[in-house]
């Protein structure tokens, strides 16, 4: 399942995947995999991403029930 919230938060800060990857300290492919839903990050990485983007875990990684 695609993580569109992460993509939106990144785009809101005008960051490319590479920029976010550099700030978080992972490879660009990892950010891409998270956005595409191909990889489930650990809680540590989730926290780092949220801190970088100035969001909470709920904002980016909590799935809304339909």
């Amino acid at each position: 399942m695609k993580n569109l919230k992460l993509k939106a938060a990144r785009a809101a800060m005008d960051l490319s995947q590479q920029d976010l990857a550099d700030k978080v300290g992972v490879s660009r492919q990892t950010i891409n995999a998270i956005e595409k839903g191909d990889y489930n990050p650990t809680i540590n990485l989730c926290r780092t991403i949220c801190r970088t983007l100035g969001r909470t875990l709920d904002d980016i990684f909590w799935e809304e029930e339909e």
Partner: peptide
């Protein structure tokens, strides 16, 4: 050389 968690997995 550093690999991130996805790469190690």
């Amino acid at each position: 050389y550093r690999y991130d968690e996805r790469q190690r997995t």
